[in-house]
Write a protein that binds this DNA or RNA. Structure first.
Length: 213
DNA sequence: CCCGTGATTTAT
DNA sequence: TAAATCACGGGG
């Protein structure tokens, strides 16, 4: 593998904190997926925070505890993968402390390793920037589906995060905006809970504006 | 802009 | 049991 081996894997303490902090700190880190002997990876360039019981846009709004959102009630570091619109999967990383059903949706990656495999899995993608520029796209490119719902990313070898930087990116390089596709959530739809690396070509549309803290 | 697509949720 | 919903993506 072309890895240096010195890369540090995100541990429990990385995830056991405020979801907004996790969402910002995930930017610039690496998501790794191992499947059938192939290691695909990408740099996380776009995230959204979901704040749990009080957040009308969250699947756990109002304390809902259903079969689908079961893993969102798990402790930080677990994956929450769900199926939506009859054909797509979306992947979240559970954050917060125990019994806080909060999570971070991974919305886009800058593909890094095995882009050939990603193109094979996503024939509709004509260009590299179409591979992982959306929550459903990245799941398809990385072979992430409901079989990975509930896995512990701190200990599982199939899906995990590698830390490429110890610090969060400089605040001015993080673009902030309202979350995508949650118009049903009333005032919560306007909250600035979407984060992206400013100027990165792999961020999904519409792009949040840079310059917001 | 519209529409597929089907599991999940929510209303009867 | 039935109806509505949906943290999306692709094509026109």
């Amino acid at each position: 593998m072309p890895e240096s081996g010195a890369t540090e894997r995100a541990d429990r303490s990385f995830f056991n904190r405020d979801p907004v902090v996790v969402a910002r700190r995930l930017l610039g880190q690496r998501l790794v997926r191992r499947y059938r002997g192939i290691r695909t990876s990408g740099i996380i360039v776009e995230t959204e925070a979901y704040l749990g019981v009080a957040d009308r846009a969250a699947h756990t709004y109002g304390g809902r505890h259903t079969r689908r959102n079961r893993s969102m009630w798990n402790i930080g570091g677990h994956a929450y993968v769900y199926f939506v619109y009859g054909m797509h999967c979306c992947m979240n990383v559970v954050a917060g402390r125990a019994e806080q059903p909060v999570a971070v949706l991974l919305r886009a990656l800058q593909p890094e390793q095995r882009m050939d495999t990603m193109h094979r899995r996503r024939s509709a993608a004509r260009r590299d920037v179409d591979l992982c520029s959306g929550p459903g796209k990245l799941c398809q490119a990385m072979a992430i589906d409901r079989r990975l719902d509930g896995v512990d990313m701190v200990s599982d070898n199939r899906l995990f995060v590698e830390l490429l930087r110890r610090r969060q990116l400089p605040t001015r390089t993080i673009a902030v905006g309202p979350r995508v596709g949650v118009d049903y959530a009333g005032e919560w739809a306007q909250e600035p809970l979407r984060f992206a690396i400013a100027g990165n070509a792999h961020v999904s549309r519409p792009r949040p504006e840079a310059g917001n803290s």
